[in-house]
């Protein structure tokens, strides 16, 4: 009996195909080259500064590259503090809004709200910066004072140099703080986080939802037992992507904070710092060494956002979200 042996398939490509493949391959390669160039140039220039500063780059708080005394201890801590405040603001807001859009909003309103959220994600950050600087700066002072008055004993929420119980004390100590910058950045990243969470929540299998409801679950019980476990990956991933955006945010932070180059653990107090704002502040007056130092700071920031983003994509990919049951 004759058996059919696997045949070798040869692909004969005509001229246009060869050109086409060549062109798109070139496109992909050019993109790769640009991206690798950015990364390696950053690394190369940063290495000069890192060589000079050594390990003190991670422990030094001051930023005087021309005197050979510079480090990112203060700015990195500042960046992380601002991003933390931002996420504390953004997480409940976006979780609630995403749930509202997918579960509670009237059906006719849903697609409209989705458009609004997506549109808000496209609002330029400088607009939020304007709002933060001209409105929130003043409006938040009583809140800051109240928090420092009653919760000042918690480390990080105290304010030095002013007695919070004294009603006549100066209020300038509460402006330009990590807290305000964090709130602005938080509101800025909320639409993006909301949009990711909503996307994942809306993919919850209808069968499981209806199963829970048919078993007599209330709406909240259904959400807690079906939607939230299903959307867990989306919640974590979306939050991490928002965190990545918050870490790299420049202009809104730059407009609000008054930069300091010491570690400022009191988030309610005047004076904050962030890597991106440092670059925006110092790029102009930089010497060769100063620029390398800024590159090193930029590289540190990039490494952080990179880890956060990759973490987010791994979490989203591993979770059940997106897979139908």
């Amino acid at each position: 009996m004759l058996t059919d042996t696997p045949r070798k398939l040869t692909i004969i490509r005509d001229g246009s195909d060869k050109v086409f493949r060549g062109v798109i391959r070139a496109g992909g390669s050019v993109v790769l080259i640009i991206m690798v160039l950015v990364g390696s140039f950053l690394g190369y220039r940063a290495a000069q500064a890192l060589n000079m500063a050594g390990w003190s780059f991670f422990t030094e708080q001051a930023w005087e590259p021309d005197a050979g005394k510079f480090g990112i201890a203060a700015v990195i801590v500042g960046t992380i503090l601002i991003a933390t405040v931002a996420i504390i603001v953004a997480l409940p807001l976006s979780l609630g809004t995403a749930l509202f859009i997918t579960e509670y909003a009237p059906r006719q309103l849903r697609s409209f709200l989705v458009s609004i959220v997506d549109l808000m994600a496209a609002i330029p950050s400088v607009v939020f910066g304007l709002w933060g600087f001209f409105f929130l700066q003043q409006a938040i002072v009583p809140v800051s004072r109240w928090i420092s008055q009653y919760f000042g004993w918690i480390p990080g929420l105290g304010v030095t140099g002013v007695d919070p119980t004294d009603p006549l004390a100066t209020t300038t100590v509460y402006t330009s703080s990590t807290f305000i910058a964090g709130i602005v950045v938080g509101i800025m990243v909320t639409p993006i986080v909301t949009s990711i969470m909503r996307e994942v929540f809306s993919q919850t299998p209808v069968g499981e939802r209806e199963g829970a409801l048919a078993l007599g679950a209330t709406r909240w019980a259904m959400i807690r037992n079906v939607v939230l476990p299903f959307g867990q990956g989306g919640i974590i991933g979306g939050t991490m992507l928002g965190l990545g955006r918050a870490l790299g945010e420049t202009i809104a932070v730059y407009m609000i904070i008054s930069p300091v180059f010491v570690i400022q653990p009191n988030i309610l107090q005047n004076g904050a710092s962030s890597v991106a704002a440092l670059i925006a502040l110092r790029y102009g007056e930089s010497t060769e060494m100063g620029l390398s130092a800024l590159m090193a700071a930029g590289l540190a920031l990039f490494t952080m956002t990179l880890i956060v983003n990759f973490g987010a994509s791994i979490v989203v990919a591993r979770s059940r979200s997106g897979a139908a049951s």
Binding site: L42, G248, A276, L291, M295, G298
Partner: peptide, 24 residues
Amino acid sequence: FVRTIVEAMTALPSIVAGLFIFAT
């Protein structure tokens, strides 16, 4: 590999992109 690099680059803070062009 290209896809991974592109994905990594979406994390590039915009100020660092500016700094790169400024320096080069």
